[in-house]
């Protein structure tokens, strides 16, 4: 087992505004937004590292950098101790190792596909070397694992509820035999009772398969339940990081305290 599953060392990413010819002729200064600014953290194998922060804080950009959907401008990104920024092509190996669960289960599954096709796709596309009957068994097995029925393989994604869809997305990630899963707000489109189901499922699967989660959320209570370690992001910078226990019980940064204070709680003592 490697020392870290994911390691970011001083990673930065700036998005530049597209320059028109007029901008070039007039020598308008280049303007850009630094979405991620010198961020460093380590994610331990088999653990959950959660990134919290408000919209625009750079959480999702980090998710995209880690899965290779964006390239960092500076710093180094290591997946299982291998640098991803040294110009090596990111191939099937990488795709087998890292998978993603997206926020919106209504847009992350093809509504025309049957559930079986959605889940078996990674087995074929990532050349896992399974025969068709093996793939079929695996789909049935995974559907059971995520709390659905093997017969659901014949249904279309559009027939399913949000919670069921997110279960399919999780089964698809498992089908790829991923070790590292980047979850970008996986429950923020779900109702609270369904959210509890999905979070319980994700923790069960982590125990069973030893998955590493990079868990991105703006919801502090969800993070409290999921995270072993937490990083708090503000305007592209990591303002605080540490074990979840510590960050929640004794937040060091004023911004973390403000985020915690803003959480609306159902407890009556919170009623003013």
């Amino acid at each position: 087992m490697t020392a870290t599953a994911i390691s970011l060392r001083g990673v930065s990413k700036t998005f530049y505004k597209r320059r028109s010819l007029v901008d070039v002729v007039r020598r308008t200064p280049v303007s850009g937004v630094t979405a991620v600014n010198g961020v460093s953290f380590d994610v331990k194998p088999g653990k959950t590292f959660a990134l919290v922060g408000e919209s625009g804080s750079g959480k999702s950009t980090i998710a995209q950098l880690v899965v290779g959907l964006q390239q960092a401008d500076a710093g180094d990104l290591l997946i299982k101790d291998q640098s991803m920024l040294s110009g090596r092509t990111v191939g099937l190996d990488m795709a087998r190792t890292i998978q993603m669960v997206f926020q919106d289960p209504y847009t992350s599954l093809n509504p025309r596909w049957q559930v079986g096709a959605v889940i078996s796709e990674p087995c074929r596309a990532l050349r896992l070397g399974l025969s068709e009957p093996e793939i079929r068994d695996r789909v049935a097995d995974l559907l059971t694992k995520v709390g659905l029925h093997p017969s659901d393989a014949g249904r279309s994604a559009h027939e399913l509820s949000g919670g069921q869809r997110q279960r399919i997305a999780i089964a698809r990630m498992l089908a790829a035999q991923a070790e590292i899963v980047v979850c970008d707000e996986p429950t923020s489109a779900l109702d609270v009772s369904v959210q509890a189901q999905i979070l319980n499922l994700m923790r069960d699967l982590q125990d069973e398969f030893g998955l590493t989660y990079l868990f991105i959320s703006h919801n502090m209570s969800v993070v409290r339940f999921m995270a072993d370690d937490v990083g708090v992001m503000k305007q592209g910078r990591l303002v605080e990081q540490g074990p979840a226990e510590q960050v929640f019980s004794a937040p060091a940064d004023p911004y973390t305290r403000a985020l915690l204070a803003a959480v609306p709680r159902p407890e009556p003592e919170a009623v003013h």
Binding site: S161, G163, Q197, F248
Partner: peptide, 24 residues
Amino acid sequence: RGLIQSIPPLDYRPNRLTQIPGAM
């Protein structure tokens, strides 16, 4: 009661959340 209990607590980390099975 189920709705209230489904909300993850902020002051500690339980092993499981109380969930309402099924869906609306």
